[in-house]
Simulated scan of single mutants.
Amino acid sequence: MARVFSRLLSSTGLAAGVIDVAAVIVEGYADSTEGFALCLSENGDLLSQWRAYGADGAGLAIGFDSKLLAKDFGPINFGAQFFEVTKIGYGEDALIDTLSPVVKELQLVFSGQGEFVKLRDGVTREAALYRLAVRQHDAGSLFEGRCDRAPELLANLLKILAPLHFQIYATKPEVFHEEREWRLLRHRHRVALADVEYHADPTMLRPFVSCLIADPAKEVIREVVVGPKHRSDINWLKAFLASSGLEHVQVTRSKIESYR
């Protein structure tokens, strides 16, 4: 995102110092935020998805009601109060669509203001990014105001850039476009909080946040698709779901008949 953002900024006519500061701030967002996502697909019976995420076809695909995903379920830790439903954009075109309104606003607000701020002398782009990442900074130690209105203008610059904090979690490279992905996303500024748990597999330690899908949120689960190599009896699956209070869930088999 930072590379495309810098390129778009370079065509605005804004002062070089202002562009450098804006680009560093946005590039630093990746190290100051974190996102936890339940990744979903518009296509619940796609061969490549079974291979990559469905135990090589032996798993199950759970179908969710998209409208209920966006509903606020109150005190339980599920729904709009805690998560955001985000459609993923693919490739550079999606990034440009996301970034262009912010770039146009920067151009409109700061055109004619000159170089009201720049990186301090001796502070390289790399050094600024490092200090942002480890939080060893304040604005005055990284950026140098160049006019009397610099504090006011810098505060406005930060306000305009703020919506880009979590855009990193809404785009992927074009090669993933067939996934047609949506994410149930919980994002925040990077801090150590007790609700982050950890799972260790043979190759990696993974952080995660537990998500309680309890009454009435359980209605969000609408369908289970049985993988092309899954061997459970459908009637037993239905009985299991009913015993878990999910008797409303429809169970179907994958339409993929030839699996290699």
Rank of each mutant, 00 (worst) to 15 (best):
A2V: 00
A2R: 01
A2I: 00
R3S: 12
S10A: 13
S11P: 02
G17H: 05
I19A: 00
A23L: 10
I25N: 10
I25K: 05
V26G: 04
E27T: 01
Y29S: 04
A30H: 03
E34M: 08
F36T: 08
C39L: 05
C39A: 07
C39V: 04
L40I: 08
L40A: 04
S41W: 07
Q49H: 15
D56P: 01
A58W: 07
A58Q: 15
L60S: 02
I62G: 02
I62C: 03
G63C: 07
G63E: 09
D65F: 12
K67L: 12
K71Y: 03
D72G: 14
G74E: 03
I76N: 08
F83L: 15
E84I: 00
E84C: 02
E84R: 10
E84G: 01
I88P: 04
G91W: 07
A94W: 03
L95H: 08
L99P: 01
V103D: 05
E105A: 14
F110W: 01
G114A: 13
E115S: 11
K118F: 11
K118Q: 15
T124L: 04
L132C: 12
L132A: 04
A133H: 03
V134A: 03
R135D: 11
G140Q: 10
L142C: 08
R146W: 00
R146C: 15
R149F: 08
A150N: 13
P151R: 13
I160L: 09
A162M: 08
P163M: 15
Y169D: 01
A170V: 04
P173W: 01
P173V: 02
E174M: 04
V175R: 11
H177G: 03
H177T: 13
E179R: 05
E181V: 08
W182A: 06
H189L: 15
D195L: 11
Y198I: 11
T203S: 12
L205G: 07
V209Y: 14
C211T: 14
D215F: 11
A217C: 09
R222K: 14
R222Q: 10
G227E: 02
D233S: 12
I234P: 03
L237D: 00
L246M: 10
K255S: 09
K255T: 09
